[in-house]
């Protein structure tokens, strides 16, 4: 009887002990993989980060941030990849993880921004087939992300980059892009992420856009 009770107790306590030690490890692991995220320039490095965040996600089924970063890494892998077939795979993976993150954290401004980015990826994969439909989803999601948090600088980085790289006849506008860069810079100066694990990327992209504009 005593033995049985002990086993029962051990089972009851185990998860508590496990998750307590986890809070630290979770934090450390996330920080480790977030470090230098802005400085990766090779698709395979982004995939490796995506895999790392995916591992954290499967070990931490209650956290949405690992799913968010997995998706973000696939989006970046897409941006640094040239092979169309690989790009397609990354786009599908990104959408998968966005959907999972979205299910846990509905109407989150940062996840909504990823939705917009994922739709833009679809457009870039096949403008003929996806242009009309996903172009609009991308616009709508960007608007929604801004509505959910008008102070999120990444929304304006994304707007700036859309305006800058889209051909003029498709609604691109370099003047407006420049304005957006300005807004994003102002928003960044007053932006504070909810925690050191929450999204805080985008400054590098902004600097890159600024440098492109100044070299014109």
């Amino acid at each position: 009887m005593k033995k049985a009770l002990f086993v029962l107790l051990a089972f009851a306590l185990a998860p508590a002990v496990w998750s307590q030690s986890n809070a630290d490890t979770y934090h450390q692991a996330m920080q480790k993989h977030l470090a230098g995220l802005d400085t990766l320039y090779i698709a395979s490095e982004w995939v490796a980060r995506a895999n790392a965040f995916e591992r954290i996600a499967q070990a931490e089924p209650k956290q949405w941030l690992p799913l968010y970063y997995t998706a973000l890494c696939y989006i970046q892998a897409f941006n640094f990849e040239e092979d169309k077939a690989q790009q397609k795979r990354y786009s599908e993976q990104a959408e998968r993880f966005i959907a999972r993150a979205d299910a846990m954290q509905p109407n989150d401004p940062e996840i909504t921004l990823l939705k917009s980015m994922a739709a833009s990826m679809r457009v870039r994969l096949n403008p003929m087939l996806n242009g009309a439909r996903y172009g609009r989803i991308a616009d709508d999601m960007l608007d929604k992300a801004q509505q959910l948090n008008p102070d999120n600088p990444r929304v304006y980085v994304q707007r700036a980059s859309n305006l800058y790289f889209t051909p003029r006849m498709w609604g691109g506008n370099k003047e407006r892009a420049r304005e957006m860069v300005g807004i994003a810079e102002r928003k960044f100066s007053i932006f504070h992420p909810a925690s050191d694990l929450h999204p805080d990327w985008g400054r590098n992209t902004l600097r890159y856009l600024r440098s492109l504009m100044e070299n014109e």
Partner: peptide, 12 residues
């Protein structure tokens, strides 16, 4: 991606 299920341990 190769990893030990239930942990963060793994590699690409």
């Amino acid at each position: 991606s190769v990893w030990l299920v239930g942990t963060y341990d793994g590699a690409t």
